[in-house]
Each structure stands twice: as structure tokens, then as C-alpha cells.
Design a protein around this nucleic acid. Structure first.
Length: 555
RNA sequence: GCGCCUGUAGCUCAGGUGGAUAGAGCAACGGCCUUCUAAGCCGUGGGUCGGGGGUUCGAGUCCCUCCAGGCGCGCCA
């Protein structure tokens, strides 16, 4: 609809220029937007305002000329009028909007699917928490975001792989093994104090008990220490990772690929990446360590990649990992990180540039903190003491649908207050129920129609013009916006736009539902309204599916 | 000290890439169920868009500066 009008406008402008009434200046596709005020029509353009200066013309006079060449734009316009300093307001024929309804029903859950992403191979990496403990709420926000971005980009036509990078190679794995053994010793009666800088969460005690109970570990504490640590860390790492996968699954998140840092190192990927950097002159030795020349690409200082004790830094394997992603054929990398890692961004971008890849192909999404509340009061969370509210606990308490939706009601750049009591409440405080409820109401009416023996109409045979109410045309207009909204939300990596859209659509439907009956006595009108609400239900379900939230038949 | 994010109604937040008279939910107050689910709807009140400059026909939106809050600034991960 919008596209059609844009074309007609461009044609009208071209015609005016050809007639010599307007000087020929370059003009991009004319901008069309929906005015805030209904009196300003369905769509409006500021074309004449933007062109006035380069054409050295009065904007209103310019608009008059364009209007004359536009005519009725191929029959979709009821009227077009000049307004204010030079806006052109378009009033579409109601039937122009209603035409979307049969289309929605025909396309079903494919309605809104885009093609803009075709040819893009995107990797979305998210969560990637160290397998040293369970996921907490903050991870949940990143998980919801990554999962939904993956869904939205696929919906737009991109080829997407989601991946979890397992940091299973660094010092923290040995620390994990030792932590497990210390707890195991306590279980065997040791009274030595638990050392600092180890994982002291309660979950380690449970793991230690489970670990000791296995027959193959009966004499683990009698084994040489290094050997025992290796056994313990491998066992605990694998165990914790399985737990993380279970927690994610309960949250509705299934990640395509789990990629091991250790496997990367064993393949010699780091040395290969170093070779590439070295060839380009971005590696050098100093003070006994190996450095990457990050300052060549705008970072504030150069960064160590191999320490003077010979160990690789975390950064080194990250360079290799990102090179590996490109080598696997992905041309757009999206990394979702906690905002507390933002200081790390310039050096990784620098590394990508140093590997001769465009730094803008790497998108860092920095998710801000989650403040967990209960009835408005902060819930204490101390990672240091190893005590935090886990994602699993939150999902258990409030449900995956509610948690996901609420995590996606904010821009990721903004901190999020997550109140457990609100998330749990089945009331109007909780936006997810508001949207789901609208969907169940649609389904409820359809069930009622079936009960009353009213056959669902064939959309092709329905007299859509019977939908003459302002609310009905408004609903159709909102539905018609969904494809563009899904595209904009995906392109800008902004899932919250979908949540807001759904909330508004649900609101418009609730109002309509309360004010008007669908199953009226007059068959032609009832049929038209059934088509309308089916389309509403379809878009609600489609939008919720993008968010990974269920669209229940009944509540 | 430097860097990133944030500042919009009492509270929590939206404001598709500069557009016309700034929006929603919650909270407050008043109404609506013998009719398709009241987890809903209708109505009322509520604002120096943190402050100050600038850019232009036009700024919540772009630039500069100041203020306030959050988070970071290791040869840690």
C-alpha cells in the first residue's frame, strides 16, 4: 500500500519535472509516514518541504503541482490535500486497507516474512556463559534477545546460525575443578577453609556430592592433585553445561551450535590467526609478551595476546574464534554481550579490522543489566558470595512466556527492572497476558461460531466493504503494517518494537471486541467480521511466534 | 581522570531514521457483565522531554557543553 503510493508519488514528481514545472533535482524515494493526528490522513509526505530548497520554490506551490500530477493514484485515494507548510496528506479509500485481510488469511503464518535478508549469512552468538555455574537472570535477558533476533532475522530471509561459545580452555576450568575437589574434601571431613577466588556457590556442594557418589571417583582424593583436578574440571564443566542447556530449553531457547574454545585451540586456530596478523605487521614482541597493535585501529592501547609466561590471553582465542566465524562463511556477526564487557569492544573490532575484514560486519549488542525486584524491592544478588537468582528459578516461578516477553519490553541499551511479582501476576499489570488474552478471545469467537453452525467464510467471497466502522479499518491498517514492522525491528536488532506493536494491536482489538459483536444476525456482516478477527488472530500469533511466546487457544 | 549506556507524566517506559497539538501501561478517581472469556472496555486528571547553547522552514530526535545515575577502564575471565 505504502510502496504503491510511493511509486505513484515518484511518478508524479517525474512527470512534473518532465513538464518543466519543477527543476530536475535528484530525489530519493519520497518519505511517507503515518501522521499522529487522524485529521492528517492515513499517510503523509513531506516531499514538497524537502524539495523546496533545492528547487528554489515555495513548498506549498510545489505541493500543488505534485498533487495535480498525482490524480487519484490509480484509484486507491479518496482524497489528497495540501496542509500546513507544505505537507501532503493522503486519505485512502477504506477498501484499500481492507484488501490486506484475505491476503493475511491466505499467507497464514508466512504473513510478514521478508526477503530483504536473502544472501546474508548471519551468526548470532549469545549467552556464551562460562560453564562454571548456572545461568542467572542477566543471562536470561541475553538469551531471550539472541533467540528472538535469530527468529526475526530468519523471518526476514537471512540464513542464520545461533551459537554458544564455550570457554572451556582457560584458567577458570582448573579453578572449577579445584573448587569441586575442595567441596569434595569437606564432604570427606576436611576442615580446611574454602580458598578465596574459587566458585563458592551452593551448587558446588551438590555437584561435589554427586561427583563423589560415582563409582569411578571413589578414590579421587587419593589421586595425584593435578590429575584429580583435570578429572574434576572435565566432569563439572560437562555437567554444568548440560544444566545450562536444560535451563535454556525450559526458557524456550535452543541454540543451534555449541562451539568449544578448546577445540579451536587444539586445531591451532590461534597460531593461524596470529600468522595473518603478523603478515600484516600487527603483532610485535615487547617486555617478553606478544602484543596486537590495536592502536592501529583506534583502540586506546595495544593488547597482549600471549603473556610473558607463555599463556595465551582470552583475547587471543577470541581473535581466532571470530576469524573462524568469517571463515565458516558468515558475512555478518552479531555478538550479544553483557554491557559490563563494553570496554572489550574496541579491541575486538580492531582485531577484525586487523584480519582485513570490515569492522562493521561485526555488530556488538551490549545488553544492559537486569535489576531483579520483588514488589518493587531489590532482590539481593551477590555473585561474589556465589548467591544469585538463577534463570531456572525465575522461569520456574513466572513461566517462560512471561519472562521472555518482559525481557523484550525494553530497548537492550536500557537497564531493565524485572519485578517477579508483576511477571507472575495474571492481571493487567502483565502485558504478556494482555496480548495472549486478545488471541484467546479471537479463538473463542471462532469456537462460538462453530458451535452455532456458522461456517468460517471463504475470504474471497466476503463483502469486505461491510467493514465500514472506523475501528475496523483501523485494525486492518495496523495489520497491514506488520511486515514493515517486522523488517524494521529485525534490521535494527530491536525486538522491543514487536512487543509494543503487539500490545497496541491487542488493545485495538480489545476495544473493538467490547464495543461490537462479531457474530451478528446479518450473515454478510458476520462473515466480514469473522475474516477480520481471524486476520487479527493470525498476526497476533505470528508476532508472538517471533518472540518465542505461545499464543494459547484458551486461558 | 578517560570511555560506553541512560535521563520523557507520581512510577515503569514507547516515541520506524528531523515533521504538524508529545504517547502507552501502572497508580488515582468515576462508570460498564441475563449477549462471542471483565486476565477486558469507556471516561477524567496529570509534561519546562535533566539544564544551557547551536544547526534549519521545523528538534524529544542531530552537534557542543554542563549536571545526575549505572557500568567499565589488568600480561583476569
Amino acid at each position: 500500500m505504502k510502496e504503491l503510493l510511493q511509486q505513484r508519488l515518484a511518478q508524479a514528481l517525474a512527470a512534473a519535472q518532465a513538464a518543466g514545472e519543477v527543476s530536475a533535482v535528484d530525489c530519493p524515494l519520497p518519505g511517507l509516514e503515518r501522521p499522529r493526528q487522524a485529521e492528517h490522513g492515513d499517510l503523509a509526505t513531506n516531499l514538497a518541504l524537502t524539495l523546496a530548497k533545492p528547487c528554489r520554490m515555495n513548498p506549498r506551490a510545489l505541493a500543488e503541482i505534485i498533487l495535480r500530477h498525482l490524480g487519484d493514484a490509480g484509484g486507491i485515494l479518496q482524497k489528497a490535500e495540501l496542509a500546513g507548510p507544505g505537507f501532503i496528506n493522503f486519505f485512502l479509500k477504506p477498501t484499500a486497507w481492507l484488501a490486506i485481510l484475505p491476503e493475511i488469511l491466505a499467507q497464514g503464518d508466512q504473513f510478514g516474512r521478508g526477503t530483504w535478508g536473502q544472501g546474508q549469512k548471519v551468526m548470532v552468538e549469545y549467552v556464551s556463559a562460562n560453564p562454571t555455574g548456572p545461568l542467572h537472570v542477566g543471562h536470561g535477558r541475553g538469551a531471550a534477545l539472541g533467540d528472538v533476533l535469530g527468529r526475526m532475522l530468519r523471518f526476514g530471509g537471512c540464513e542464520v546460525l545461533t551459537e554458544y561459545y564455550i570457554n572451556d580452555a582457560g584458567n577458570q576450568m582448573a579453578t572449577l575443578g579445584r573448587s569441586l575437589l575442595y567441596r569434595a574434601r569437606e564432604l570427606r571431613g576436611s576442615t580446611e577453609p574454602f580458598p578465596d577466588n574459587h566458585y563458592r556457590g551452593e551448587y558446588m556442594k551438590d555437584l561435589a556430592a554427586e561427583f563423589l557418589a560415582l563409582p569411578e571417583h571413589v578414590d579421587i582424593l587419593q589421586q595425584p592433585w593435578d590429575q584429580a583436578v583435570a578429572t574434576a574440571s572435565a566432569w563439572a564443566g560437562a555437567k554444568i553445561l548440560r544444566g545450562i542447556q536444560d535451563d535454556l530449553a525450559a526458557f524456550g531457547v535452543v541454540i543451534d551450535s555449541y562451539y568449544s574454545e578448546r577445540s579451536l585451540l587444539e586445531r591451532g586456530a590461534v597460531e593461524a590467526a596470529f600468522d595473518q596478523l603478523r603478515q600484516r605487521g600487527f603483532l610485535y614482541e615487547a617486555e617478553g609478551a606478544l602484543w596486537f597493535k590495536a592502536t592501529a585501529f583506534g583502540d586506546e592501547k595495544d593488547r597482549v595476546v600471549r603473556r610473558s609466561n607463555g599463556e595465551l590471553t582470552y583475547f587471543a582465542s577470541d581473535i581466532a574464534y571470530h576469524l573462524d566465524k568469517f571463515q565458516r562463511g558468515y558475512n555478518r556477526l552479531i555478538d550479544i554481550w553483557g554491557a559490563d564487557h563494553h570496554g572489550y569492544v574496541p579491541r575486538l573490532k580492531a582485531a577484525v579490522a586487523g584480519l582485513d575484514r570490515p569492522a562493521e560486519d561485526l555488530n556488538m549488542v551490549l545488553v544492559q543489566m537486569v535489576n531483579l525486584l520483588r514488589n518493587g524491592e531489590p532482590v539481593a544478588m551477590s555473585t561474589r558470595a556465589g548467591e544469585f537468582v538463577t534463570l531456572a528459578e525465575v522461569v520456574e516461578e513466572v513461566g517462560a512466556d512471561s519472562a521472555r516477553f518482559l525481557f523484550l519490553t525494553r530497548r537492550y541499551e536500557a537497564q531493565l527492572d524485572f519485578d517477579l511479582e508483576v511477571a507472575k501476576s495474571k492481571s493487567m499489570d502483565n502485558p504478556v497476558f494482555y496480548v495472549q488474552y486478545a488471541h484467546t478471545r479471537v479463538k473463542s469467537v471462532l469456537r462460538k461460531a462453530e458451535q452455532e453452525g456458522v461456517a468460517l467464510p471463504d475470504p474471497a467471497g466476503v463483502e469486505l466493504e461491510r467493514l465500514a466502522l472506523e475501528e475496523e479499518v483501523d485494525l486492518a491498517r495496523r495489520l497491514a503494517e506488520f511486515p514493515a514492522l517486522a523488517e524494521a525491528a529485525a534490521r535494527n536488532l530491536e525486538p522491543h518494537r514487536v512487543t509494543y506493536y503487539l500490545h497496541e494491536l491487542a488493545g485495538a482489538f480489545h476495544s473493538y471486541y467490547n464495543a461490537h459483536r462479531v457474530l451478528v444476525d446479518e450473515p454478510a456482516l458476520a462473515a466480514a467480521r469473522l475474516v477480520l478477527i481471524q486476520a487479527v488472530g493470525q498476526v497476533l500469533a505470528g508476532g508472538l511466534a517471533l518472540l518465542g511466546v505461545s499464543a494459547p487457544e484458551a486461558m
